[in-house]
Design a protein around this nucleic acid. Structure first.
Lengths: 402, 402
DNA sequence: AGGTTTACTTCGGACATCGACGAAAAGAGA
DNA sequence: TCTCTTTTCGTCGATGTCCGAAGTAAACCT
């Protein structure tokens, strides 16, 4: 006799009928957005629904101009379909990937096209107000340059180099951002825009971007970023970001590695990011400061060469452990350390394949990021589009008439 | 301009209408099974559906006798409800938690009551045929003793101390089970029973059992088992088991810890389970063999005391790393190491709370398993009940008439 | 005995989904 | 050029799902 077991129940009953129509509309919109279907007939084929049902649930999306249809150039046999796309005039998403020293801002529409993009200097140590004020100003300027009315902004997505409580959009105990703890980032944007604001950890956004640019079968995916710090983004087998109980998941920079006594900015000793991060390598290589030490691995001098190899190996040790624990399908390496290219990749791979069990590495692939320093804003666009096209997001757009 | 992004889409369209009714019936059945609702009115309140809808979708479940209703003893004001329970006569689930040296078998009904339970000796090194044959024989004997017809067995759930490909039910490259690699465990049971067979890693089942015996808000949950080996089961924030890309997730026994050179049975050097597992401690404590060295921490002599403390600390180091990476809401310690009780708990806790970042440990609780050595069979029953009551499971039971 | 409360069933209406039919718009072939 | 085929799209009735209202049942309270 057991106590009652808490069976794995969804939090909400299926088919509360009020939002069932929204679920279908949302599903259709996401199929169109992902390019898996471009006409009503194709949607019917992909979903298995009747064409009439598809048309019915497409109607509200066309009515609010979220989806546009235009004539297709013919070429096939029968009547040419009316091609469905997300309407570029439906509004834009503002995304900001704020790093410790630099930030990347962009404007995207729901069709996942970048309308504008720029990189700015940020110094998060100055505190939230000046940094966010500059981001807001840059956003307004970018909008003006492209003649986009601010009220056409549907959503703002911000990535921060800190643990973030995603539900409230608030950084929690950031180790490197004095003054940001519990700062209400969404409210800061709502002085200039009326759109909702999503805030997430920057590495989470990069992981999401990489995951969505690959076949879903590669999940679970681990994105490891090595720049000033070392962090990790986790995408589970069903494509969801794993943020952990407190939004602190993936914070592997302060894992202790043996044999190193460097003092870390977190106050601890022997943290991997105190030894193997890009910043630490620069320090050891002779304090070249902000200079760019390596454009390609050919120009790496001997000492730097050795430092990168050792650091990559230590990172590989940690990754090998994560492979044991999490057994991902693919590991993507990102951050400024990937400037060292094959040096970095080989260093990590050799340790991972040597250390981890054959079963977990048999089909594992370890790769460099294909998105480079745009992974953050791409992931932010993904998060934004998925949010707007989610049933909850559509509820805000579709009038309650029906 | 991006390539098309693979937005996070569910693999199947919502509302294919053919199984929509099944979804609702499944949801109702699971609510009844978990004890969250015991009458039609209560179901209506909990789900938000109309009472008539509840009755309608309950009907097929009553018709196939999966759910039974009996008169309630009165006591409240109005008409007493007809109490709904999972019918004990609906059939049984056979569960087996097969360990390296001992196995635990049980018969349970869908109401999550254990009808029979016994422990047997197993020696998995003898290969799959003799071990599974004995399990089958024991099952048949247990059924006979309780006068249960073998054709009333609806499902068989087996836990094995090996990585398992859950979809096919086949162990893959087990490190300690010679001859089991790719052995078709389900087929082995189908010579005696006609029921479907689920096979999973034993630690996964224990993690599932612990997770379901706690409020869902404690997820994500990590279950760490330290016995002959060291393993870990992962339950994500939505209550799902994370099995990894190859079914190898949680295999943390072969994480390397610094400062130890013990040779592990996996062939590596410095694996944590070669140093800090229960078996390793017994070896070091003087090779007492199969004797039971500690019934309570009072009887632990000084040397054993120190060994346990050190081992718990090393396990704590690994757990601290997992906390950094995964940020769980609760960590449950299980396995034979928990015989050392508070000694073990204190050793792990002290390291975890000292090592991990405050953010991730602020609300983290580290606890001993409350289910003890029954966690495996309890988790197996959970997996079985959830499988039978899932929409797919119900489809097999409910005739296609409607 | 009658009122109150709670629980369950039945029934008709509102809505969703489907399949069938027909119209529209292209190319293919006579 | 005209007709046939092909593919797409819209419309309409049939079927099934879900809801709310009304009615019935079974307890307790006064």
């Amino acid at each position: 006799m057991l106590p009652w077991l808490n069976l794995g129940l969804p939090r909400t009953a299926p088919s509360a009928q009020t939002n069932h129509a929204l679920n279908l509309s949302s599903y259709l919109a996401r199929l169109v957005a992902s390019g898996q279907a471009t006409s009503r007939s194709e949607l019917a084929r992909v979903t298995g629904l009747a064409r009439s049902t598809v048309s019915e649930h497409l109607a509200p999306l066309l009515r609010i101009n979220l989806i546009a249809e235009h004539e297709a150039e013919a070429g096939a046999r029968g009547r040419p379909p009316s091609v469905l796309t997300l309407n570029p005039q439906a509004g834009v998403i503002l995304v900001a990937d704020i790093g410790a020293a630099r930030g990347r801002l962009a404007i995207a529409d729901f069709g996942q096209h970048f309308l504008a993009e720029r990189s700015i200097k940020t110094d998060v140590a100055r505190g939230p107000e000046p940094v966010l004020a500059e981001v807001r100003a840059e956003f307004l300027q970018m909008l003006a340059e492209h003649q986009i009315e601010p009220h056409n902004v549907r959503l703002i997505v911000v990535g921060l180099p800190a643990p973030v409580d995603f539900a409230s959009g608030v950084p929690v105990r950031p180790p490197i951002m004095p003054g940001w703890d519990n700062y209400a980032v969404p409210a800061s944007f709502q002085v200039a825009f009326s759109a909702p604001v999503l805030v997430d950890n920057d590495v989470n956004l990069m992981a999401l971007g990489e995951a969505r640019c690959r076949p879903a079968s590669q999940c679970p995916l681990l994105y490891v970023k090595a720049s000033t710090g070392i962090g990790c983004g986790i995408v589970t087998h069903d494509g969801q970001l794993h943020r952990g109980a407190d939004g602190a998941a993936g914070d592997i920079g302060h894992v202790r590695v043996p044999g190193h006594e460097e003092v870390c900015r977190c106050g601890g000793v022997g943290c991997i990011e105190a030894f193997a991060s890009y910043a630490a390598i620069l320090r050891k290589a002779g304090g070249e400061g902000t200079g760019n030490p390596a454009q390609s691995s050919d120009s790496v001098d001997g000492q730097l060469h050795a430092l990168v190899r050792t650091a990559a190996g230590e990172i590989g040790e940690v990754i090998a452990m994560l492979v044991h624990f999490f057994n991902p399908g693919v590991i993507v390496l990102g951050g400024r350390m990937t400037q060292f290219g094959d040096e970095m990749l080989a260093g990590v791979r050799s340790v991972v394949y040597r250390r981890a069990l054959p079963l977990a590495t048999r089909r594992l692939s370890v790769e460099l990021s294909t998105l480079g320093n745009r992974a953050g804003i791409i992931g932010a666009v993904v998060l934004g589009v998925e949010h707007v096209l989610s049933p909850q997001g559509l509820r805000a757009l579709i009038p309650v008439s029906s």
